[in-house]
Amino acid sequence: MHEGVILLHGLARTRRSMRPLAAYCKRQGYCVVNAGYPSRRHPIEILAQSVIPPAVAALRRQGVARIHFVTHSMGGILLRAYLAVQIPANLGRVVMLSPPNQGSELVDCLCRFAWFRLLFGPAGCQLGTAEEASPARLGPAAFPLGILTGNRPALGLSRFFPGPSDGKVSVARAQLPGMADFLVLPCGHSLIMRHRLVQEQVTHFLVTGQFRR
């Protein structure tokens, strides 16, 4: 039986951002659902329950043996919100790309501005570092998780972070207790999913449960 992969894009993105990764996973033999969702319209909890169950159902109709997830940025927080409520019986492995698992200092700085709230919607301001923010309330990983993040911020964005970052999420805050593996690559936040090295590491983790060193 085939194995399946559900892809979840990040905030203010569409499924188009994940198409190169979707194509790569298909070439590796996976059944792929590249799920899109209106990331700026609803809170994280509503988005998670609206997009992930239909994607899981679509793969089950194809008779897949295991369902893996690969997420980018806020997509990882959606998945954590979903798995906090229910874990599919045939859940495989999870790879998160640049996830704000402990929130983002950039959000802390920007969510006080009306233009940010208007542009990024209710989910955007849920991604801060405070204890009441969504990432902090979701707890450690209770599933096989590998996290890939970058350390090449876009020009001018490094000043928002006390240490290395990819320009949107710090290396330290991408991590999550319970993760099986963690790897930092020379990538920025927005295009990390397009790098061939990242794509190869994603499928290596899906097969082996660890990244290639």
Rank of each mutant, 00 (worst) to 15 (best):
residue 117 R to H: 08
residue 58 A to L: 10
residue 22 A to N: 07
residue 187 C to K: 14
residue 44 I to R: 04
residue 198 V to S: 03
residue 117 R to E: 11
residue 100 P to K: 13
residue 29 G to D: 11
residue 199 Q to N: 02
residue 37 Y to G: 10
residue 212 R to Y: 07
residue 139 G to C: 11
residue 166 D to N: 10
residue 25 C to I: 07
residue 38 P to F: 03
residue 95 V to C: 03
residue 156 G to Y: 07
residue 17 S to C: 03
residue 190 S to H: 12
residue 126 Q to K: 11
residue 99 P to A: 13
residue 204 H to W: 13
residue 105 E to N: 12
residue 182 F to H: 07
residue 99 P to N: 05
residue 183 L to A: 09
residue 127 L to A: 14
residue 177 P to M: 11
residue 102 Q to G: 15
residue 35 A to C: 08
residue 23 A to T: 14
residue 50 S to L: 10
residue 22 A to G: 13
residue 213 R to W: 09
residue 125 C to M: 14
residue 4 G to F: 06
residue 163 G to Q: 15
residue 18 M to S: 02
residue 62 Q to V: 02
residue 176 L to V: 11
residue 189 H to Y: 09
residue 12 A to I: 03
residue 94 V to R: 00
residue 65 A to V: 00
residue 116 F to G: 00
residue 22 A to I: 10
residue 80 R to V: 00
residue 213 R to H: 13
residue 172 A to E: 15
residue 38 P to T: 00
residue 206 L to P: 07
residue 207 V to Q: 15
residue 186 P to S: 13
residue 157 L to F: 15
residue 172 A to T: 14
residue 59 L to E: 06
residue 90 N to K: 06
residue 52 I to P: 07
residue 64 V to R: 04
residue 30 Y to C: 02
residue 96 M to R: 04
residue 44 I to L: 12
residue 20 P to W: 07
residue 74 M to R: 02
residue 4 G to L: 05
residue 177 P to H: 12
residue 29 G to R: 05
residue 9 H to A: 03
residue 135 P to I: 12
residue 30 Y to E: 00
residue 96 M to P: 04
residue 167 G to L: 08
residue 203 T to V: 15
residue 103 G to Q: 11
residue 25 C to W: 04
residue 141 A to D: 10
residue 95 V to K: 03
residue 40 R to C: 12
residue 179 M to P: 06
residue 169 V to A: 07
residue 53 P to Y: 11
residue 103 G to E: 08
residue 132 E to Q: 14
residue 3 E to D: 15
residue 128 G to L: 13
residue 150 G to R: 08
residue 48 A to S: 14
residue 152 R to A: 12
residue 148 L to G: 03
residue 113 F to M: 08
residue 148 L to A: 05
residue 174 A to P: 01
residue 33 V to C: 03
residue 121 G to W: 09
residue 192 I to D: 08
